[in-house]
Design a protein around this nucleic acid. Sequence first.
DNA 1: AACGTTCCCGCAAACGTTTGCAGAAATGAA
DNA 2: TTCATTTCTGCAAACGTTTGCGGGAACGTT
Lengths: 334, 334
Amino acid sequence: MKQVTIKNIASTLNLSVSTVSRALNDHPDIHTKTKRLVKKAAVELGYNPNIIARSLKSSRSNQIGVIVPEIRHDFFANAISGIEEVAYQKGYTIIIAQSNEQQEREVINLNSMYLHRVAGIIVSISQTTTSSSHFKRLIERGVKMVFFDRVCDDLDTPRVRVDDMESSYKVVEYLIKHGYKKVIHFAGPRTLEICRNRRRGYEKALKDLRVGYEPLIFEGGMHESDGYNLANELLKNGINSCAIFAVNDPVAVGAVKRLKESHIEIPGQIGIVGFSNNPITEMISPALSTVDQHSFEMGRKAAEILIDQIEGGKYPSSELDIKLETKLILREST
Amino acid sequence: MKQVTIKNIASTLNLSVSTVSRALNDHPDIHTKTKRLVKKAAVELGYNPNIIARSLKSSRSNQIGVIVPEIRHDFFANAISGIEEVAYQKGYTIIIAQSNEQQEREVINLNSMYLHRVAGIIVSISQTTTSSSHFKRLIERGVKMVFFDRVCDDLDTPRVRVDDMESSYKVVEYLIKHGYKKVIHFAGPRTLEICRNRRRGYEKALKDLRVGYEPLIFEGGMHESDGYNLANELLKNGINSCAIFAVNDPVAVGAVKRLKESHIEIPGQIGIVGFSNNPITEMISPALSTVDQHSFEMGRKAAEILIDQIEGGKYPSSELDIKLETKLILREST
DNA sequence: AACGTTCCCGCAAACGTTTGCAGAAATGAA
DNA sequence: TTCATTTCTGCAAACGTTTGCGGGAACGTT
């Protein structure tokens, strides 16, 4: 079935294409009687505007690109849900792509979005991203970009995140002040600023509270398997009395798995805290203490800022560095 | 910075636009020397094709629309991840929208995707969807559509799902044969075919195995809060020795929550089984028995079929009703 | 009645790419 | 050298919409 276009309406009503277009768009130059006629015919003929044609005329689309490491990851799924909510309300659609923690795929995804002339892009970078040149290139071409959670610290774009350093400082402070003789950090990759900052917060808390021992840091990735492996390493080192501050919930959950396998009492022998507040943390046994970073809200905020940028809003991009409040949620694992 | 177009390359090389376009697309009519010149100039000038213009010319895009009830729901996040993997490999991008379990929003999302002239659409319907006319309308206009998991049973389109009836039959059969004197079903809304089929499997198993009691069905929604409320109702009815077969994992998890609040022994007093195999089921205590329906694979399969349809593949749409194998995973809750 | 102003509509270019068809140049055979 | 065929490139329309600008009709004033 052929699609109905403005041309069809025009020839049906013996009007010109431009008159029909203006009538459909309520242009003041068009007589109200003509407008009524055109709109009625549009409904009768089943006319639907072609967004592709509109986008070509304006040289850009009403689409927002979203690039995250993994869609299935709770935190990112929640953030995407928040982004979609705002985009839907403001008349934008979302193109989504995952980098699978690979910088090369991130580059391909970014280029694809550029080729689609998206209105703007929201990104949380992969854990292997070591250069921001692919982002820089598009920013230089005028593409609006907002980063959330995992950001590039050398780019002058809006960012939505939490104060990772302060939040992890508070976690470690809490652990120390509640009797844990030793606090260990399961860190993430240094390529990620959130990991560097969470690590800094850990180190600063130890220093400020004069714990009298050197920082004990185990470094791995951001997945359950990493937490599992680091806990394994911990046990191999004969450490079975401490608190663990894990870089995120999946790592914490993986560690819990391994500790339970060795019948380590949580929190009796080893306490553990994650970061994110994924739904799973409430349900595992023991229920996991964690830092809530409001992923849905983070997504919403990122979308609001990006759309404000796209629509020529009030804020210059270099003035936006939104830090959402976090909240330490204490459950059974501490 | 203005975008470089074929026109810029053409005027730089003193060639026509059509020659440049053909050279870039390796058209056999163009001399290889000319092709080399054009490609070199394209790189030097920083040319990027405009996908919008291409899409206008072909009257459609290389985009796949995906509509799910909720992005943040583990099952859907996994399925979307699987869809994106295949789409990425086959050179498609994904527009994503969530219906938030509302038929009206589903209609709006569908129309938006039509206006964007997506190449095809993958859908899992909302739990309030009672009519398929909005899908029918687009199918009649030639839009390729594939449903997964929650399908419309009156549409002649490809579907990817599991055999819900058979799978739930096996669950109930297992529960009965392993000593549960009474098996109760926490059902989902009847508007969803998966819920009706899971319920049918439950009823058929009871009948076939001549349990001597009537089906005991509590009906609610598909979320944790529904499971919590239904468990509350169960306890209020004074039932504290049985097995529960829940329509999906969130409902099962919600029920577990409520039962633990009342210090009911799982599986000692009440056994419980979910459906899906979300990651959370492995981690809660007790670890939840469930039916694995391979959500990532379901997404992959739906995308493969849709792209095959788009690219004029081998299978007529009315011959495709893919049932993925399920697997009963026994954990601590039974 | 004439003239100036306003209203209403149409022409045509533009956005960037693709492609059917035509024509000029090159090539080979007679 | 001439003619037929092949090669290579260009013209221009098309996709569907938007919009600057121009012109004819209607209207109001003198």
